[in-house]
């Protein structure tokens, strides 16, 4: 049974797949960044992270284990000197996958996979700004639905009228009221229909 074996087979027999991944990890460690498909990259990062872990151990036994996978002696030397030093501050997350776009021909999603020596900028779009505002306003909105709390909400609006989040919450409460009205109308029409059927 092939239960709980999570690795991808990548359409190859074991020997073919292993030698491909060994070649790829050798290239990755030699150049720092390679272009491949996302599926291959995701499988490659498992092996690449293990290589860095061996390099950070730095013992002769680790070096021999790395040598048994990496195809090139000089790359093993680079791994144990260069990359081990670069990654000394990190505990995992040694590689990064960045998507490029679909490949012409078979539309396979291509990506860069690189050794993550730097950190990328946090994306600062409209969405993240809205989320932060929404997080402030979110606790108010769902609890404001009952009519009893309307007075307290009005007082909040007068005090915090300049904020954008309050305007959103009032709009949402209006839409809620409308939808409930619609539900009631639907209920009436349903009963009428039932009468007509009878």
């Amino acid at each position: 049974m092939r239960h709980r074996i999570r690795s991808r087979r990548l359409g190859r027999k074991t020997a073919h797949r292993e030698v491909m991944l060994r070649n790829m990890v050798t290239s990755l460690l030699e150049h720092g960044r390679i272009v491949t498909t996302v599926t291959r990259a995701k499988e490659l990062r498992r092996l690449a992270d293990k290589m860095v872990t061996l390099a950070k151990d730095g013992s002769l036994h680790s070096r021999r284990r790395a040598m048994s996978i990496i195809m090139d002696k000089t790359v093993v030397a680079k791994l144990f000197n260069h990359w081990a030093e670069k990654m000394s501050e990190k505990n995992g997350g040694y590689t990064r996958i960045v998507r490029i776009g679909p490949r012409r021909g078979d539309a396979a999603m291509m990506c860069y996979i690189e050794m993550a020596t730097d950190t990328l900028e946090k994306p600062r779009g409209k969405k993240t700004v809205r989320k932060s505002e929404g997080a402030v306003a979110a606790p108010v909105i769902p609890q404001a639905a009952p009519a009893v709390e309307e007075k307290s909400r009005e007082s909040e609006e007068t005090t915090e009228g300049s904020e954008v989040g309050d305007g959103e919450s009032s709009e949402e409460s209006q839409t809620d009221d409308q939808s409930s009205d619609e539900v009631e109308e639907m209920g009436v029409s349903d009963t009428e229909k039932n009468d007509a059927v009878k």
Partner: peptide, 10 residues
């Protein structure tokens, strides 16, 4: 992508 130029040589 996210402030990093990926066309640079590595």
């Amino acid at each position: 992508y996210r402030g990093k130029n990926f066309t640079d040589r590595e």
